[in-house]
């Protein structure tokens, strides 16, 4: 049974129908790449899965349960978390408090401490900046914090929205190295990224979106070839969102 099943989902972003009948699946322990250019509907799809946007129709089934009537904040407690695009950290809180927000609702202090140790182990840079205001971090560190905070919820499925956007190559690799290891911890990943080459290098399978629909799906080597063609063909790269 798949961990996440999205069936025939339609969703609006503002007044635009940005997701038009998308179906996809993420299995236990998988890293799935969601590819496509700006405005392809990736973010909207992730928002709809996490519940921030209510879909107009379609099904989102997580671990065998429909999420239709589950409030977005409850989906987090069920193990589904989105690390949003654009370094959306809590700038006026310390790094430590940001991470604590990831463990919101968890009363067991011991458990929180354990998780904190694990997460900081993955991102040692954050440990050095524990008491700093998150707003003073560099862009890369903020992106790490977004991921780390999401991992603090101890998710079963992590939705990642453009984790490498605007980052220097060295930092991008650092972040991708962490993502690569997540399945070993029992965390499945749905990874949306414009950098298809990079995403496919760690993903087992992938989907390519354009104009709100999935135009291609398959395993990574296959899509490596396809996406190169698709990008050249469809001119996705650099299209204004």
């Amino acid at each position: 049974m798949n961990l996440l099943d999205v069936r025939d989902l339609f969703a609006y972003r503002g007044t635009v129908l940005a997701v038009k009948g998308v179906s996809l699946a993420v299995g236990q322990g998988e890293i799935i790449a969601l590819l496509g250019g700006n405005g392809a509907g990736k973010s909207t799809l992730l928002h709809a899965i996490s519940g921030l946007i209510a879909p107009v129709s379609g099904q989102v089934v997580f671990a065998g349960e429909s999420l239709l009537n589950v409030a977005p904040h409850q989906r987090v407690h069920a193990g589904l978390v989105l690390a949003p695009q654009g370094r959306r950290i809590f700038a006026r809180m310390s790094v430590y408090e940001n991470l604590l927000m990831g463990a919101h609702g968890q009363r067991d202090r011991q458990l929180i401490r354990e998780r904190m140790t694990t997460v900081v182990g993955r991102f040692p840079r954050l440990g050095e900046r524990f008491r700093q205001f998150a707003g003073t971090l560099s862009g890369g560190e903020q992106q790490m914090l977004v991921m780390a905070r999401a991992l603090m919820t101890q998710p079963r499925l992590l939705l990642l929205d453009e984790p490498s956007l605007g980052l220097a190559p060295a930092l991008t690799h650092e972040i991708y190295d962490v993502i690569r290891t997540l399945p070993q911890e029992g965390i499945s990943v749905l990874l949306a990224d414009q950098n298809s080459h990079l995403a496919l290098s760690i993903a087992g399978r992938g989907y390519i979106m354009r104009n709100g629909i999935i135009i291609r799906e398959g395993n990574s080597p296959q899509l490596q070839r396809d996406s190169a063609i698709a990008e050249a063909f469809l001119g996705n790269r650099g299209r204004p969102g």
């Binding site: 921030l52 987090v76 949003p84 809590f90």
Partner: peptide, 8 residues
């Protein structure tokens, strides 16, 4: 919205 994403 991010607060909601963190389960708040």
């Amino acid at each position: 919205s991010v607060a909601i994403l963190m389960g708040v």
